[in-house]
């Protein structure tokens, strides 16, 4: 019974948060702040939020309070800065390989296991792996096994040390 009550409450919170995000997006993209467009925006955002809030806010996921969302967001923000440094590093890496006349590559496909709590964390790690030097995610299966295509052997070994996985786990650690 208590479970049911909490679910309804979560649904309402999910709809509200989705509605606010959608409405802000509408306002920014339309850039028209007269009464007709804003009311049309409220109507559309409400419809979208009512029908598809469960795609954005997982009702039974690891998120239990709004503070969790905020904490995740802040940790994610700091992580993004670290990731940007990695992206620039990986680009310089690609430039060095591409402009080398000998084309020094020795590709290999490796796999490793991860124990991240849920699919958002898995997707974050997969995208981060693709953006960091010399690695590309090929596939993730249901058990959290990653298949990685590495451009050179050294970069694959770097990935297997698990530095990035620890960082991603630290973002979502508070919520799980």
């Amino acid at each position: 019974m208590t479970n049911l009550v909490r679910d309804v409450k979560q649904d309402k919170a999910g709809i509200l948060v989705t509605f606010i995000i959608m409405f802000v997006l509408w306002a920014v993209l339309s850039t028209l702040f007269d009464i007709v467009h804003l009311s049309l925006g409220i109507l559309c955002s409400l419809l979208v939020a009512y029908f598809s809030y469960d795609l954005l806010m997982r009702p039974s996921g690891s998120v239990k309070h709004v503070s969790d969302i905020l904490g995740n967001f802040l940790r994610f923000f700091t992580y993004t800065f670290w990731l940007l440094g990695q992206v620039i590093h990986s680009n310089l890496d690609v430039v060095r390989i591409v402009l080398d006349p000998k084309l020094p590559i020795s590709p290999q496909i490796i796999k490793f296991n991860s124990d991240l709590p849920h699919d958002v964390a898995l997707a974050t790690l997969a995208n981060s792996i693709t953006l960091t030097p010399g690695t590309l995610t090929l596939d993730i299966d249901e058990n959290g096994t990653y298949y990685i295509h590495c451009l050179t052997k050294r970069q694959g070994d770097q990935l297997l040390e698990g530095d990035m996985q620890a960082r991603v786990a630290a973002i979502y650690g508070g919520g799980s």
Binding site: V94, L99, L136, L138, L151
Partner: peptide
């Protein structure tokens, strides 16, 4: 650099490496 990578690399996966990042 991404375009040159797309031109020079040897198979789809290595080409994806170059183009995605750049």
């Amino acid at each position: 650099a991404g375009s040159i990578g797309l031109y020079r690399m040897v198979d789809v996966y290595t080409r994806l490496h170059a183009t995605t990042k750049c």
